[in-house]
């Protein structure tokens, strides 16, 4: 098997998905679960169609996706810049890595109460939480990517008199790119989860709020329509990043 993550054949994936939907269908039509808790695939699909036709779901999806992408991009920018500064110095790396690993293992949701008390329940709180939570995987990956620069390349940089900035730009960052892209993939998942949680807690427009309201009103088809859309966002974004990753690390 090659070391590079393989893009699986879509046929197996589609077959697996079809099986899950079929079992879902059997469970709901067989009356094993109340329709108030789990709607059938068909009801979910029609809720999805209604929501899209009315434009309501489209707007909510756009709001959530924008929140996720904005938070993720901001987090990536912060993570790469900060990670480069930490990564370039051996001392800073040794000094900060345990702290970073500790902060990363704090579930971002645990930070939400702190964020609420600091900035209230507005959109900036949600964005702040998304950024805070999704910054860690990319930050640690960037530091890691700098730490793994070959000693020989450091010698080359010294012999050539590369400045610190040139070292970051020409050696450190390119060396870290595979790690950074992998970190950004993790960050994107975290950003999606936190966008939804943030919406649920703050009532900002988005799929999170939509799901929460549907659940409270026992509108199961709408609840599952929202969940299906969230799954789709996760699937499309991680597949897109996987493709981007393959293009970026072509030289391997």
């Amino acid at each position: 098997m090659s070391a590079v993550s393989r893009i699986p054949s879509p046929i197996m994936g589609v077959a697996g998905l079809a099986l899950v939907i079929f079992i879902w269908h059997l469970v709901t039509t067989g009356g094993m679960v109340s329709k108030a808790f789990l709607s059938s695939p068909a009801d979910t699909l029609s809720a999805l169609q209604r929501g899209i036709a009315s434009g309501e779901l489209v707007g909510q999806t756009r709001a959530t996706v924008l929140r996720m992408i904005n938070g993720w991009l901001l987090a990536s920018l912060v993570a790469i810049a900060l990670g480069s500064l930490i990564g370039i110095s051996q001392t800073a790396r040794d000094f900060l890595r345990p702290t970073l690993a500790f902060l990363r293992s704090l579930p971002a949701s645990a930070v939400i109460p702190v964020a609420i008390s600091l900035v209230g329940l507005g959109p900036s709180m949600v964005l702040g939480v998304v950024v805070f939570g999704s910054v860690w995987p990319t930050l640690l990956a960037t530091v890691q990517g700098f730490a793994t620069v070959e000693q020989r390349l450091r010698d080359v940089a010294q012999v050539l008199h590369l400045s610190k900035a040139a070292f970051i730009w020409k050696i450190g960052l390119p060396n870290a790119v595979p790690d950074i892209v992998a970190g950004m993939r993790l960050s994107l998942t975290v950003a999606l989860i936190l966008s939804v949680i943030g919406e649920m807690l703050s009532g900002q427009e988005g799929l999170g709020t939509a799901i929460l309201l549907a659940a409270r009103a026992f509108r199961a088809p709408e609840l599952y329509a929202g969940i299906a859309l969230l799954g789709l966002i996760g699937l499309v974004s991680s597949y897109g990043l996987l493709m981007a990753e393959r293009r970026i690390v072509r030289w391997r």
Binding site: E150, Q151, R152, V156, V159, H161, P174, W251, R252
Partner: peptide, 18 residues
């Protein structure tokens, strides 16, 4: 800059992404 070095382990001394 007057002194250039050719290292023994060429595979590690080149930038693999260039």
């Amino acid at each position: 800059r007057e002194v250039a070095v050719v290292f023994q382990d060429y595979s590690r001394a080149l930038l693999p992404w260039r």
